[in-house]
Design a protein around this nucleic acid. Structure first.
Length: 376
RNA sequence: GUGGUUGUAGUUCAGUUGGUUAGAACGUCUGAUUGUGGUUCAGAAGGUCGUGGGUUCGAACCCCAUCAUCCACC
């Protein structure tokens, strides 16, 4: 993997860059649509390319491990071939799922014992086997196995958890170096900063993660319920320590406003379920603000979904029709809303990048922050 | 026409021997949702208890009439 910074913003810590993987080159900052099970829910791969122009999507180790399973993925020749996607893929390690889905999980030094949410079968994830699974998936970017602490979380728990994540990182790196890609293309490993909302812990963690000297770095354990200001403070603390010349990935973020604020603080990569999951439930994002398409006020609004939108659904269908589809839980409603929202998110980061390149990012961001949070 | 059944929220239904402000589910309306279980959670609005009388301190509940409904029989 290659990362080049083309431009540093003069007034903020924002940067415009370029990442190259074995499956293509793309600009940063970037938003990566979430495709947990090898599918961005409701969106064809062709639409991701033509309409949304997403150069990289996420897969999830936990979910893919349970279904279809590593044997099938290996026989398929990896996830790219399995799903017909020749652009980049990043896989989350499953640390977050173990924290969010499994109430009966047991975190031990060796790894995590958890039960499948599908059939209750007991499995153990270790740093080693999570690396092995991501080798089999064949993601361009693999994530280290971490423990994502909840919020609130007392400092003692946060410290112990962070230290465990650090020990797991050493094991991840070791396994990563001992193993080879299976399908002839290069793979990278990103470690993850933890430390909850404690500046002291975040500093320690960022130093540990920087010292691992991987090709890119991630910040985890945020956007789990803490106030946004606290999240921004943690990003600043961490980004003061993480190397400038490597991509920084803020995991699980967020609302459009969060993304702009994080870009201003030096983040290059994002993923989040909001444009997809909230889209399926009627939340639409526009440059003028947020629409809850289920609201009665749109019932007879026959104007286009987004007259400034760039995807084919934006002008093709009316708000009233989309409202009808979402309220009736028609599959097409979820598809249209998702395509619109992902189109918006990718356009948002592309526009942010243009402003970084043109030295107009700070003023543009400040004007957008108010607009984007408006409820229409 | 005769005998019976059932009428309670937009819909389907609870509602104790008559006892404070008549409940639920779904639907509707409003929020929430941040490294995805095609969700989930929270809140709100909405009823002259078919109608009119009567009994009673007090009626969705008991009595009479009437209207509607469905069933059976002529």
């Amino acid at each position: 993997m290659q990362f080049d910074i083309l431009k540093h913003d003069a007034q903020t810590s924002a940067r415009a860059g370029k990442i190259s993987t074995a499956h293509g080159t793309f600009n940063t900052p970037i938003f990566m649509p979430v495709g947990t099970l090898g599918s961005v829910k409701g969106v064809h791969q062709s639409e991701l390319v033509k309409d949304i122009d997403a150069p990289i999507i996420l897969g999830n180790t936990y979910h893919l491990f349970l279904r279809p399973g590593i044997e099938t993925l290996q026989k398929a020749g990896g996830l790219h071939k399995f799903i017909g996607w020749n652009r980049s893929i990043l896989t989350d390690s499953g640390g977050y799922q173990v924290f969010s889905l499994s109430d009966k999980r047991k975190v031990k030094e060796e790894g995590v014992v958890f039960q499948s949410h599908i059939d209750g079968t007991r499995y153990t994830f270790t740093p080693e086997n999570v690396m092995d699974v991501q080798r089999i998936i064949g993601a361009d970017i693999m994530m280290a196995f971490d423990e994502c602490t909840p919020y609130p979380c007392d400092i003692k728990y946060a410290r112990n958890s962070m230290e465990l994540t650090h020990r797991w990182l050493d094991r991840c790196v070791k396994r990563f170096k001992e193993t080879e890609p299976l399908y002839g293309h290069e793979q990278s490993l990103f470690p993850i900063v933890q430390g909850s909302v404690y500046n002291d812990l975040r500093k320690i963690s960022a130093e540990k993660i920087a010292a691992a000297d991987c090709e890119g770095n991630a910040i985890g354990g945020l956007s789990v319920g803490e106030p946004a200001e606290m999240m921004y403070e943690m990003i600043e603390t961490v980004n003061n320590i993480l190397p400038v010349n490597k991509p920084r990935y803020l995991m699980g973020v967020g609302m459009p406003v969060n993304i702009l604020e994080a870009i201003a603080r030096g983040i290059d990569m994002f993923d989040c379920v909001i444009p997809t999951r909230n889209g399926r439930n009627g939340m639409l994002f526009t440059m003028d603000g947020i629409i809850n398409i289920k609201n009665l006020k749109w019932k007879e609004d026959f104007s286009p979904i987004d007259e400034h939108g760039t995807t084919h659904v934006d002008l093709a269908y009316s708000k009233a029709y989309l409202r009808h589809l979402i309220i009736s839980t028609e599959i097409l409603g979820a598809q249209i809303a998702t395509i619109h929202n992902l189109g918006f998110y990718l356009r948002l980061v592309r526009t942010a990048r243009e402003h970084i390149m043109n030295d107009s990012f700070a003023t543009w961001k400040n004007s957008m922050v108010k607009k984007l949070a408006t409820r229409l």
